[in-house]
Design a protein around this nucleic acid. Sequence first.
DNA 1: CGCCAGGCCTGCACGC
DNA 2: TGCGTGCAGGCCTGGC
Length: 271
Amino acid sequence: MPELPEVETTRRGLAPHLEGQTITSVIIRHPTLRWPVPQQLTTLLPGKQLHQIQRRAKYLLFDTEAGWLIVHLGMSGSLRVLPANTPPGKHDHFDLVFANGMAMRLHDPRRFGAVLWADDDPNAHPLLASLGMEPMTDAFTAEKFFQDTRTRSAPIKQVLMDSHLLVGVGNIYASEALFVAGINPKTQAKRLSLARVQRLCDAVNITLERAIRAGGSTLRDFVKTDGEPGYFQLDAAVYGRSGEPCRKCGALIRQIRQGQRSTFYCAVCQR
DNA sequence: CGCCAGGCCTGCACGC
DNA sequence: TGCGTGCAGGCCTGGC
């Protein structure tokens, strides 16, 4: 479920409730998510303060006095803040409990998510060390992405989702950004001109920023006692609109398979 | 029942 | 031999 905008919305929703709070206990109900949940969290974290919540790609980074807790939401994960004594549901695998009586609870039916640990620099963690450029930052430039794609003969849709080049663009936003840029998802990455790469990079930033803004209205949903955390509905231009008319030209939106993933596009607007 | 789902790592085959 | 690259498989559960 979560793509970068959802992860960033989660970060912004959690931060005001948890930053500065002291951790009193850690509850691991399911010891294996995508990878084993480090057992030592239960002894490392109690008594330690949570300074700040940061984000790198789709990883949430919890800066604590003892080190860094790293959380990835996978495809079905969500985090919320609730009273620590709230009875856990079937897929509530992990709690961070705080001195103020609240807990941050990880819910993840498919268990593709992860809870990891880094003693110091989380960006040096093996899973984060080789990540590519962060969109919506100065580090993300069209010139660099242009250089990086000169050897890539794969379709631009798939290259756009290569986290070693650029992070945070998942299956939905890859289709959306390519529509905004007017680029056919089947185009070989290395055949795009610098000007078109520039348009694509702008489209990635605009698409993600717009989705994050849309997520702002859901922030209050991160604190409540029951129900689902309520991710926002994306107002997609092409994603999931197979067979429906393009909002720009009226042609029917097409759905194809690329790398075992669905891609949606308008064959008229995207060349 | 089969198929689909928004992530992302691993391992394999291939070509330079 | 050692890489970068492209591709398939796999992890799980739930909804249609």
